[in-house]
């Protein structure tokens, strides 16, 4: 599947320039700069609280960035004059909690956006909705209501709902994190298919295998920064930074933790430099090699 990298062109779809976001005094993003290209599949990984979901939500302005620039398809969404609804219609979004509309049937979930935003007529909208429900393998559920579906089915409907708008790119915010383990596979295979068809995808995920197989590029975030990014074999297979290594070790070998409380210590350590710097302007120091908790048993 790594061949999907061939879809990526050098055309920039999303340009992110020194993006910051603070909730009150709590700085969640501390200056993110990256580009996403047409056809590229970018997976963002990182510990909880690292700001990856906030980063994704800043891209379609579900969170208002504090400073910095986000340009989507040539439109600067951080500009006050930008018609954000128009930009959002072209950016599909899939949520961790699915967020299907419970009062609408599966088919209506997939048509309401087309009818209200794309102004398509009903027959056309339903035709496109059915095409996309078929893509996610749920055409037979079109009359069902979200409450009657399993989590995995709901998430696939959510993907079909987003695809029905015919977006230019898709944002996935931890799409499998709320699913029972046995339901994750179906959602991931839908996403794999989407990636192989050349969809531009920005995926916040904890699924390392997916990131490794499908992503063209993996971004590792921690403490509001991009710590490391590159092709998945490098970032996941051969991480350069200690923080990436620690995180991956914990994710890939969850039973290997030496002592209870180790995660708390790791968290405290990661965020030790995150205190507001009182406008001194200097970046907090990134501890790279102070992690001795594993007693060298790992990367010794």
């Amino acid at each position: 599947m790594a061949a999907s990298g061939s879809h990526a062109s050098r055309e920039v779809v999303i340009q992110v320039d020194d993006l910051t976001k603070a909730f009150g005094k709590n700085e969640v993003l501390k200056g993110i700069t990256t580009n996403i290209h047409r056809g590229e599949v970018v997976c963002v990984i990182g510990p909880s609280g690292s700001g990856k979901s906030t980063f994704l939500r800043c891209l379609n302005l579900l969170e208002q960035p504090t400073s910095g620039k986000v340009v989507v398809d040539g439109v600067e969404v951080t500009d006050l004059d930008c018609d954000i609804d128009k930009v959002r219609a072209d950016m599909g979004m899939v949520f961790q909690q699915f967020n299907l509309f419970p009062h609408l049937s599966v088919l209506e979930n997939c048509t309401v956006g087309q009818l209200m935003v794309r102004k398509r007529d009903k027959a056309d909208a339903e035709k496109r909705a059915r095409t996309n429900l078929e893509r996610v393998g749920l055409l037979d559920k079109e009359a069902a209501f979200p409450g009657q579906l399993s989590g995995g089915q709901q998430q696939r409907v959510a993907i079909a709902r987003a695809l029905s708008m015919e977006p230019k790119l898709m944002l996935f915010d931890e799409p499998t994190s709320a699913l029972d383990p046995e339901l994750v596979g179906d959602v991931l295979s839908v996403m794999r298919k989407l990636a192989s068809e050349g969809m531009t995808m920005f995926v916040v995920t904890h699924e390392m295998a997916f990131a490794r197989d499908v992503a063209d590029r993996v971004i590792f975030m921690d403490g509001g920064y991009i710590v490391e990014e590159g092709n998945p074999d490098d970032v996941i297979g051969n991480p350069q930074h200690q923080r990436t290594r620690t995180f991956l070790d914990r994710v890939l070998n969850p039973t290997k933790v030496g002592q209870i409380g180790g995660e708390d210590a790791a968290y405290a350590e990661r965020h030790a430099g995150d205190e507001p710097t009182d406008g001194s302007g200097s970046l907090p120091e990134v501890p790279l090699s102070t992690n001795t908790r594993h007693g060298g048993g790992l990367h010794g």
Partner: peptide, 27 residues
């Protein structure tokens, strides 16, 4: 009505008024 409902509606490109009328108020 959960906040995610508005977010889902807005992320489809619905203006705030449409999201309220079509998604929030019915629920």
């Amino acid at each position: 009505v959960p906040k995610g409902q508005v977010e889902a509606a807005r992320s489809l490109g619905m203006p705030s008024g449409v999201a309220t009328r079509k998604i929030v108020l019915p629920q």
